[in-house]
Design a binder for these strands. Sequence first.
RNA 1: UGUUCGAUGGUGUAAAGGUAGCACAACAGAUUUUGAUUCUGUUAGUUCAGGUUCGAAUCCUGGUCGGACAACCA
Length: 563
Amino acid sequence: MNTESKLPLEESRSLNFIEEIVESAKVGDSLPRVHTRFPPEPNGYLHIGHAKSICLNFGLAKNYNGKCNLRFDDTNPVAEDVEYVDSIMEDVRWLGFDWEDRLFYASDYFQQIYDWAVVLIKKEKAYVCDLSAEEVSSMRGTPTIPGTPSPYRNRSVEENLDLFERMKNGEFAYGSKTLRAKIDLASPNMHMRDTVLYRILRAHHHRTGNKWCIYPMYDFAHGQSDYIEGITHSICTLEFEVHRPLYEWFLESIGLPLPRPRQIEFARLNLTYTVMSKRKLLELVKSNYVNGWDDPRMPTICGLRRRGYTPESLRNFAERIGVAKRENVIDVSLLEFCVREDLNKKANRILGVLNPVKVVITNFPDNHVEELDAINNPEDASAGGRKIPFTKELYIEQEDFMENPPKDYFRLRPGGEVRLRYAFYIKCENVVKNPETGEIIEIHCTYDKESRGGKTTDGRKVKGTIHWVSAQNAVECEVRLYDRLFKSENPEDGQDFKADLNPDSLKVIKGYLEPFVKNAKAGESYQLERLGYFNIDKDTTENNIVLNRTVGLKDAWSKIVKK
RNA sequence: UGUUCGAUGGUGUAAAGGUAGCACAACAGAUUUUGAUUCUGUUAGUUCAGGUUCGAAUCCUGGUCGGACAACCA
């Protein structure tokens, strides 16, 4: 009827402050070009905080018909390694983003950046300094006290040019000289106090090999790399806010023509019960508090993947937490909500018992197997169905039987009747205990033959439905139950975050699953009905199926019990 | 304490001078062959003090609180 062209979704969703910046630059009816980049340093594995940044940068480009580059910020060969390059590319792709043919490295630009340093020297905006790191540090002053000039600050252009070239040629020892910007030693912004541009490093670079022995610092490489790539919005985290004047000073001082990239800072992600710093994650790995970077308890993307998180759930999470400049700590329960939401739609259901107690159906024929129909996913009719074998001896969950149950308990009890999911009504007739320990060994029940499939025609009401598995057909699996890695909401609060490690963050138990699980492939997610979502681990072999618990189902009963 | 950024329910995030909304969490109820899902409802918020205005979360002034910055890391 009218000319409305907005999508309903976009109409209802409000803009974050970065999108507003993009929109405010609207010229007439056309949007400005949007070109972002995700610039990881290849010195560690990506974590969920990076996922936020990836979704932001690639998402912004997508929404505004722009582009997003993947660029490795590889200016410090001492810390970096190809091992990380590969994992980072894998993780970005897995999250569902594509940099197409725009894979770049800051090291691609080393020559250009070097040439620009020479430009700065010629403009008397940079000089070679012989001070040691300690001396530079002690002469920098404090925020309230101006720094003292380096005695080398006024070397001639010719001398600087000569020295800088000889630095490049490897004539000087590691750390003996730096190239410094000549800015303002009295600046209240410490980064403007003649920051270091180049340092001498004798290290093998993963891409340039031994070609260079001087390497540019982040500040001198990042903005220029953005410029070279035609980046419009250079999005980074809040701690770079104070670097912005430097970022702009370099582009300006080198004399690069407009348009220039604009640096925009947002608040990084923090999660309750989680540490996020690379240093701490590395320590957890190196000191074997966890089993590698992809340990399912780690907040790394590969850890979350192995835990059973899906790319969709992570993208939805990133969307829900929003983007702003204020410090934030997101409740992990939101993350858990996001996987449950996604897996509820996608994961096929199976029956499995984790803490078994044997049930004997006394009126069921010996050696008889009844094949029962089960629905794979009630949320998705196209997932179809399967058969589950029912036999005289079954396992049910220990928690699903109580001799002296509380008021609202509607599972199995002496004399009580309960429905076995997709199977029959059973009634508890007798309990067999170990005479010495009092432990329940077997629960003897009778079944109602007429209740096949879980319903009868007599209108009888059976409130409880519990899961079960045929004792003789059950597949014994290894089940890894994960809990939060740390005990307190903010593990970084204490002196030593390792003291806050949760000793029960991993429990390995045996589980008994319906035979269908034999078809499962590594990486697949299943819901064990009434228990939670589980992912088939890559450690799975033909004789040992391994399941990782992604997250439990919401559990209203456990809350009632606590009260 | 120098510069700088920030402050909205328990946690996040909207509202661009005009009804403080949404999500998660919590709680209550309905439905349910998963105590799940789904649905409905409830609790709960503008850091403080002034000012401008018919009207302020929003603008102004000041205070308070919190973060970031003094690597030859990124």
